[in-house]
Write a protein that binds this DNA or RNA. Structure first.
Lengths: 274, 274
DNA sequence: ATATGCATGTCGCAC
DNA sequence: GTGCGACGTGCATAT
């Protein structure tokens, strides 16, 4: 989970490779050409028009915007309002052409599959900068295991249609069962929840719980391993023990909790401690 | 369709309100606070970490990124690669807090509905700029009427299920029928295509075509007005003449043409000139 | 390679 | 306000 790059703390923050305020288009051309050819990040603020042709066609009359060209070839044109770029090009196999015409600086981005192109034509530039952004940090989007359990308790149908909750954190011989219930056919179900990719230990743990329940209830008991994913070799284990896997998306769980309004939920769980 | 703002050509391009290269966090704080409170555009490049909590949760460890805060309250955090922002806040009812802590500049964006917040914490800043972007230009995304007709000819089901093409640009007394065919029940159908919002003239023209066909064929004839939209008062006219409206999205049409590969399509139409 | 489903989707439009 | 569909959706995953 550690995501610090080696030397990240010891290296000083990068300086901009270039910053020009109100340059001429030809001065800006050099910066733009260098930045794009060396796969740096290019940042341009200026008055420009934009034409797009490909999956559709579009025309944007002159106005002052922020344009970003990234190292991977993605291009963004942002107006003064709006979350979304008004024009763009997703990164990938994108070819750029930087050209200084009479009084304009043109940046063209072209890609195949789908075939489309964007041309940004600057008639004046307020600010241009070439940047060498150092960013190797990890981005993590998550819900905690507790969050995922709460989501399942709130919406048991996340596991399967017709699942009815009996209890949670149920004490059995080997430990605590995350979620316990019955399926639509009346069979007992033991659920083991894992926040991330489930390993062998999860399957083994689940198998033990099931044995514990079976020995007491003397009924058919299903076991469901609910996690975002399972390790490859766990699949065999599931088959061996007759267990099932249910993919559970932590982001989806997080969204469900949001919708249920965490505050009220917390009260509910405080008042009903398993 | 003209979209030039009054005075747009006579006013000089805006100058950046502020541009600071490698400022201290406290210097940057002033710029950020001013820009946000006056609903300007704020542009920051620097080493930052980002935390998001709301519909989901996310954590982004320190790295150098581009951060934009727009006049409408939208916030974007862009890494060195990728079309999409790694973190963001859509514009609208967003409240910002700018705070200079010991050695960091924090920018927090908070909104309700859905309840979520993003905090960007800068530990160093390469470049910060407050901008007053003048941009009143119109953005138009379109397919030509010819494109829309080609799309309908390629995919008649755009009009309705079971529509069979008979001909196009068919000559009748008052002029040319855009598209002519039969519906799934064998009734004749006359289609009038408009690239933009259809006015009364479109409905009247369509009605004339239908009369012309009826007088010759002596069969039931349906009339469909296909366009992105119809003017409010046209609705009454449609009812009066027993005409129908079918919404036709020019962007969708443009995409259909793309998929059909324009080149081959052009050949086809050249070889089959109505 | 294409087909399918999800997204912190966002956004616009009808009800 | 709320729900529904479209998007130059983008993007990942499964086939």
């Amino acid at each position: 989970m550690s995501s610090k790059a080696i030397g990240e703390d010891t290296l000083p923050t990068s300086k901009p490779l270039a910053v020009l305020v109100e340059p001429s288009v030809s001065e800006a051309e050099n910066v733009a050409r260098e930045a794009i050819s060396h796969h740096r990040t290019l940042l341009v603020v200026g008055k420009c028009s934009v034409d797009y042709a490909g999956r559709a066609k579009s025309k944007l009359e002159p106005g002052e915007r922020i344009v970003i060209v990234k190292a991977d070839g993605s291009l963004l044109v942002h107006r003064s309002i709006g979350y979304e770029p008004v024009n763009w090009m997703p990164g990938g196999n994108v070819i750029f052409h930087v050209q200084c015409r009479e009084y304009t600086l043109d940046i063209r981005a072209i890609r195949q599959k789908p075939s489309e192109s964007v041309r940004v034509s600057f008639e004046s530039i307020q600010l241009i900068s070439a940047l060498s952004l150092v960013d190797v940090a990890e981005f993590s989007l998550y819900a905690s295991e507790e969050d995922m359990q709460k989501a399942v308790l709130l919406k048991p149908e996340l596991l399967e249609e017709g699942f009815k909750l009996i209890s949670w954190e149920k004490k059995v011989e080997p430990g605590f069962i995350d979620v316990y219930g019955v399926d639509k056919d009346g069979r007992l179900v033991v659920v083991e929840i894992k926040r991330k990719t489930a390993g062998k230990d999860s399957a083994l743990q689940l198998a033990k719980y099931i044995e514990a329940i079976k020995s007491k209830a003397d009924r058919e008991v299903r076991g469901i391993l609910a996690s975002p994913n399972i390790a490859k070799d766990v699949q065999r284990l599931l088959v061996t023990f007759g267990l099932e896997f249910k993919r559970l998306d932590p982001r989806k769980c997080a969204e469900i909790l949001r919708r249920a309004e965490n505050k009220k939920l917390a009260e509910y769980f405080d008042e009903n401690p398993s």
